[in-house]
Design a protein around this nucleic acid. Structure first.
Lengths: 195, 195
DNA sequence: TCAGACCCTGACCGATCGGTCAGATGAGGG
DNA sequence: CCCTCATCTGACCGATCGGTCAGGGTCTGA
């Protein structure tokens, strides 16, 4: 009785996570998931309205934390935004790297689905914050490289312990990000062109 | 007469590049490509043995350059390998960013196909070189972040001119990479000065 | 005892996929 | 003239996809 939903629900979720991580969302059929659980495809669709709902439930916790980070970022600008975005995103990526892994590059198409529409905007704001809200092309490019790279690295290093991955990523970000607050002009570099 | 293969071949190739870049390899059907060209699906399969062959021909130039970079990397270690890998990969990524864009995250599954088997090994060697062949976790993590991030950034910024993208990426890499102990002074290359 | 909620299933659906095949078309050369 | 060959096509194939549906167990509370 205590169990409002049968444990099959959880088993399907777990199996879907494994299969999505292994072969991607598109590359995994409901049949694959059912086979791994040991039930019929119809059972999968009894517990979940459709394939997309399965993905949505899998991603819900990560999306909630991402939303929360976005809220925290709302009032910040410049170096402060950079700081919060960096630490917040590294934290999020490390913590939810399993969820990130199971999207594995299908982000663009998946984000096009209406269910994930607002994620697109959040990730753009996050990228802006990462660049310290600078519109210098160099800063915007660096922000994208780091965001995408961190995601990919977290997906790849699923078996590296948190307390090894997180400091390595934070150190990298700290090296790689050009602080935006310093008002003095940079020493001459090759890309010093103004746009 | 001079045209051994009809121009349709090239048109199909161009259309496939556009569609793959827009919706990914898996997300693009032969029907889609045929529709864009204005011919039948059978015509596409008359000019190309199968869908994979279409992708292979599209990727061939990029793969050749990647192979060449791998060869150049063969005898190098430590800081020298790091240097060559960084400059070489940024160059390659910028130059072939259209090709990178049309893989768009499907790398893992695509690389599993036998036709691209050796690319897997090349990219692992490249990652090693990027880390200066260090086995420090931090170095390996940073290498992956940068490689993946650069790829993604190039795919994203297809419309940014080369001479803006390349220096921004090089500057980022130079900031982000922790120099490994340089074994011996190497002769000055084109852009060898430390940051 | 029995109605009904819950859980699960096989059979089936229409759509779409990559790929095959026999044949239509048309230009060129003997 | 006809034969050859490159090009192109519609019709078709088997497989697989996500999703539907009617119905069969099983448990429970009235």
């Amino acid at each position: 009785m205590a169990r409002a939903v049968s444990e099959t629900h959880g088993e399907i979720l777990a199996a879907a996570a494994r299969r999505f991580a292994a072969t991607g969302y598109r590359g995994t059929s409901l049949q694959d998931i059912a086979r791994e659980v040991g039930c019929s495809k119809a059972t999968v669709l009894y517990h979940f309205a459709n394939k997309e709902a399965l993905l949505a439930e899998l991603m819900a916790p990560a999306i909630a934390v991402l939303q929360e980070l976005d809220d925290r970022l709302a009032g910040l600008t410049g170096g402060a935004a950079q700081q919060v975005a960096a630490v917040g995103f590294v934290d999020l990526a490390v913590r939810f790297r399993r969820e990130i892994a199971l999207l594995r590059g299908e982000f663009p198409e998946l984000l096009a689905q209406p269910a994930f529409a607002h994620i697109q905007q959040i990730s753009e704001r996050l990228r802006d914050a990462f660049a310290g809200h600078s519109d210098r092309p160099g800063a915007r490019i660096a922000a994208l490289v780091l965001l995408a790279g961190i995601s990919e690295a977290c997906a790849e290093f699923v078996d590296v312990p948190d307390d090894e991955l997180r400091p390595a990523l934070l150190a990298l970000v700290r090296r790689a990000v050009e602080p935006v607050e310093s008002p003095q002009p940079q020493p001459p570099t090759t890309e010093d062109k103004e746009s």
